[in-house]
Amino acid sequence: MQSQSPTHEFFPAPPSQTWKRYPRLLGRLGMFTLIRELSLRGNFLVKVAVEVLWLGILLAFYETVFARTSMVASWPKQDYLFFVGCFFAINGVLETLFLENCNEFSNLVRTGDLDFLLLKPIDEQFLITCRRVDWSVSPNIIMGFCVMAVSLWNKGWEFDALRVALFAITFTCGVAIAYSFMLVLTSFSVWLVRNQSLMEMWWLFSSLARYPREIFQRGWANSLDLVFTYILPILLVVNVPSRVMVKTIEPKMVCFIMVVTVASLAASRWFFQRALRSYRSASS
């Protein structure tokens, strides 16, 4: 060290520790993960190809279904395609930003590598659930929006600013509710250490979210609709934003999803903090 260097001086925290820091940090984390992904480009390209293929199969399947019927559970073809696009976009956001991080959480707990994340002077939930951006699934978001745009075009949809604004709000709410579910399931890793079965539960939830509520509104499945709309409201995630764009706007459901969003974010954060209190840190 240079002899003329000043005496040790601790860097005090800047006066304003605002939320603005987080988007900047997310951008930086996203950039680093992109650099990493591009340096392993073979893996990156294969993952992108798989996602494109998966959407293609899904669209081909619905083409086949709608070749034989004009409606599925009261959803005409173009509306249903919008729903599929909305699901793809929401799922794309979740997988791009959070899924890989949540999946890896149990590994961090098992190896004790979580230690370094907890030591950083930043919100633990942010750092744990957002530290890596999975760019290979990000094309799903674009593909989802493209499918939505094409379906609206085919449907002859006329621009409606209110619907677009409500869609933006409820789309964000949908992402937040699904994120909360993911966070709760992830938090269990602190106690269970191995979390495979819980992440399978996440796949079950996301499978439920990909269908319109009307599918569950008959016979015995009615109870599923009630449970997964009002108790574990995973059916709201895609249904509400899709409906505000292509069906009649239901103010009650729009309000409900906003209340559910606030409640689920608060509850999942509380649960996550409880889980971190029980963290034992693997011995080194």
Binding site: P14, R21, R28, R36, S39, D115, K120, L127
Partner: peptide, 28 residues
Amino acid sequence: SLVMGQKNQLWWDLPASDSFELHREIYN
């Protein structure tokens, strides 16, 4: 700061300078 000789906090696939830059952002 806590340094653990048996654990690694730097990003494995990236140069250390990138991890330092991230550190700068986190610690402001």
